[in-house]
Design a protein around this nucleic acid. Sequence first.
DNA 1: GCCAACGTTGGC
DNA 2: GCCAACGTTGGC
Length: 138
Amino acid sequence: MPAYWLVKSEPDAFSWDQQVANGVEPWTGVRNYMARNNLRAMKKGDLAFFYHSNVGKEIVGVVRVARTAYPDPTAESGDWSCVDMQAVGPMPKPVSLAAIKATPELADIALIRQSRLSVMPIEPAQWRIICKMGGWKG
DNA sequence: GCCAACGTTGGC
DNA sequence: GCCAACGTTGGC
């Protein structure tokens, strides 16, 4: 059984459309220890929501971990990691931050509680609720 | 564009 | 090792 995650990207920097166009994409640039540790805990086949921060503020798609953590080639120094993400498909109905905040069952989600974290785990129950909200047929 | 939250840095 | 200053993220 796969684990579930949420990864954030500013669409101005790297958008869902680019992820889809590229197919498999290295998820680089994470420079936060908690987020890095989450990257390192990912297993091949794990699924993650792709969230657009700043612009859109909604979950727009689902990606799969295609390669587990390896040294981030974009890091000039330090002990940083990245994984490879593969686009699985778009959310039929993107799930907005406002909709997540308005859902009592999602009040504890890290997206709200730790708004600055860019890579975070998602509980299976939370994953199912968001999939339902977005019309995702997993 | 502002500002709150919060992680990181650096002086002591 | 503490903590103030600083920088960054990200919602509004």
